[in-house]
Simulated scan of single mutants.
Amino acid sequence: MPHVGLFVTCLVDFLRPSVGFAAVKLLEDAGCTVDVPQGQVCCGQPAYNSGNSDGARRIAEQVIEAFSGLDYVVGPSGSCIAMIRKEYPEMFKHDPVWHSRAVALAARSFELMSFLSDVLAVRPTPVRFDATATYHDSCSGLRTLGIKEQPRALLSHVDGLTLSEMSDTETCCGFGGTFCVKYPDISTKMVSDKIANLEITGADTVLGGDLGCLLNIAGRLRRLGRSTRVFHAAEVLAGMADRAGIGESERR
């Protein structure tokens, strides 16, 4: 029975805890023992991307310590897991001790959809979600971790769900972490283009695997007065998407 540490992520912790609970359910249904280490913190990506290398390394050290001794580290975010898998070893390349620990952590760290599909090869517990949905591919998950078919394969087992692919699904939604703060006008144009493409599909729901992207899309949808629902794929797969979608509480 795999012993898995759940990397919750900052956005899930503060803004959409149901994604974390859904991840736990999916992992436990797949036969895993799940821990949520209390010592975990941010993956360090905002500091790293802003040039604060020393701060990012200190954060990374705490994450490495928090998840030591576990078989796997799994997170519902391609962005955060890409940071752990790809950037941690690079950050410590001149420190033999920490580099070794970073490489070891990277090797056993996986994004949730990839872990369920590629490592455990599970067939999800049957659930129903009546919707026509389109799926947004997030940049880090797609380009850094190769996550494309895994969520679609898992979602194909959901009763009542029809997936309708949009044009340019692989194009960035404009979130990009600090990008949307530094370049708000460009970000708004990018997410507006994304929404135009998703509306052409006739979908009433948007699904994805990175909460940052989903919050960005949901926020723009609400400002445009659209009723399209937005969920993390884990919420649908766990049968926990019958509540308010991402961003709907803000609209009310």
Results as ranks from 00 to 15, higher is better:
V122M: 08
S79H: 09
G69F: 06
W98L: 14
T171D: 14
G31A: 04
G239A: 05
Y48N: 11
E235M: 02
D71P: 06
S156D: 09
C43N: 01
T132R: 15
M166I: 11
A241W: 01
E235R: 02
V73L: 15
H136T: 09
E90V: 13
I64L: 10
S79D: 08
D13R: 02
H99D: 07
C43V: 11
G219C: 08
T228Q: 06
G202P: 07
D35S: 12
F129M: 00
R101G: 03
S227D: 15
P126S: 12
S192D: 14
T205S: 06
K93T: 09
C213T: 11
S53L: 10
E235I: 02
A121C: 12
A131D: 11
D204F: 02
L215D: 08
T201C: 09
R58F: 09
S187D: 01
R101L: 07
A244G: 05
T132W: 04
D242F: 06
S167L: 15
Q45W: 08
N52L: 15
D185P: 00
Q62E: 14
G160L: 00
V119P: 07
G51F: 00
F129D: 03
P37D: 12
Y88H: 00
L11E: 03
D29S: 05
A203F: 05
I147F: 04
D204S: 14
A238R: 04
T188P: 01
R229G: 04
P2E: 04
A241Y: 10
G219Y: 03
Q40Y: 04
R143G: 11
A22M: 07
S18N: 15
I186A: 14
A133G: 14
K182E: 11
S164N: 13
K25W: 05
D242R: 08
V181G: 03
A47C: 07
S53P: 07
H157Q: 11
R152H: 02
C139D: 06
R222N: 10
K25V: 03
I200A: 14
E65R: 15
R85H: 14
G146H: 00
E199S: 14
V12F: 00
T134K: 06
C32I: 04
R143D: 12
S167Q: 15
S109F: 01
T125V: 11
S164V: 13
S109C: 01
E250Q: 08
V206D: 12
T171F: 11
R243E: 11
A133I: 13
I246A: 00
S114I: 02
M113I: 06
V4Y: 06
A153S: 12
R123T: 15
T188C: 07
S227G: 07
A22I: 01
R16K: 12
H94S: 11
D95I: 01
P124V: 03
G160E: 08
E170T: 14
G160I: 04
S18M: 13
G208K: 01
K86S: 11
T188K: 12
T144E: 15
A218Q: 07
F7Q: 08
A23G: 01
A131R: 13
G20C: 06
L70M: 10
L154W: 11
P37I: 10
P2N: 03
D95Q: 01
D159I: 00
G245R: 09
Y48P: 05
R226D: 07
C80Y: 05
N197E: 12
